[in-house]
């Protein structure tokens, strides 16, 4: 395929998923908006006033980057895992792509693009809601860093979701990882607290949690302060992206779960 034909194939996969996202917006966009509003209400407004300040800002301002990140992570992950699983399991419409000249790496890009777009869009919606709860006092230290970390985080978790979608043999296989792995990782990665408020032993555990590095970089973009240097977060994120692309490429090229 020529570069133009590759672009058309990629655009087709991306467009198809974006059309689906907006067609079922009640299922794709609304749940995170409602959940985040509840988080802002309970953790920010009700409990936050008792917590006081964290990293030099009030708790509501502190918790915003973490909650936006939470929305990006869960939406990017579930989008690519479910879309891929659905197309290979329920309707077998994945065959439409498998019989075409679309190469495996482009299939990865196509499926992941929908996850990235959904993650960033939902993250933006949650950010807009946070403005309402923070009374327009939302801190923004570096918009470029915010955008960079939003996109890279969505990419990491869309890729991770795709691995899950490829491996899953039942619908339970799609739900187990988000419930038992992803959610604990997100909650223990520093969404609601700074690592400095943890005992030393717990900090070491946090250092092996990739979510910590994402939230750290993202929070730096908002507050201008971070638990660890920004370059460390970017290095971990880049390493994860490379590793996940390699795993996905290997799995899809081999046809694991796709071809008998």
């Amino acid at each position: 395929m020529s570069p133009y034909e590759l672009w058309i194939s990629f655009y087709t996969m991306m467009r198809k998923d974006v059309v689906r996202l907006f067609r079922i917006w009640v299922q794709t966009f609304l749940p995170s908006v409602i959940t985040s509003s509840l988080y802002f209400l309970i953790f920010g407004t009700v409990l936050g006033s008792r917590i006081g300040q964290m990293q030099g800002v009030n708790y509501m301002t502190f918790v915003v980057p973490g909650l936006v990140m939470l929305a990006i992570v869960t939406n990017a992950y579930s989008n690519s895992s479910f879309t891929f699983f659905q197309s290979k399991f329920f309707m077998r419409s994945i065959d439409e792509i498998l019989v075409s000249p679309t190469p495996p790496w482009l299939m990865i890009a196509g499926f992941v693009s929908g996850g990235v777009i959904r993650g960033v869009l939902v993250g933006t919606l949650v950010l807009l809601i946070s403005i309402f709860f923070t009374g327009l006092r939302l801190a923004v230290a570096n918009m470029l860093v915010i955008l960079l970390f939003a996109i890279l985080t969505a990419l990491v978790f869309a890729l991770a979701g795709l691995v899950n979608g490829v491996y899953a043999k039942t619908i339970d296989g799609i739900n187990i990882v988000p419930t038992f792995v992803l959610q604990p990782m997100v909650y223990l990665g520093g969404v609601f607290y700074s690592i400095h408020s943890l005992p030393q032993a717990a900090r070491y555990v946090t250092y092996i949690n990739p979510i910590f590095y994402l939230i750290n970089g993202f929070r730096y973009g908002f507050l201008g302060v971070a638990d660890i240097p920004l370059w460390v977060s970017l290095t971990v994120l880049s390493g994860l992206i490379v590793a996940l692309i390699a795993i996905n490429w290997y799995l899809i090229r081999k046809g694991l779960g796709l071809k008998q």
Partner: peptide, 28 residues
């Protein structure tokens, strides 16, 4: 290929199914 099993997304309409298939072959 016309496969043995019906394997398109039932929530899409025929024109989209056919046009998307063309897209996977790089046809604008």
């Amino acid at each position: 290929l016309v496969g043995q099993e019906i394997n398109f997304n039932p929530f899409e309409n025929p024109i989209d199914i056919v046009v998307n298939q063309a897209g996977y072959y790089g046809i604008p």
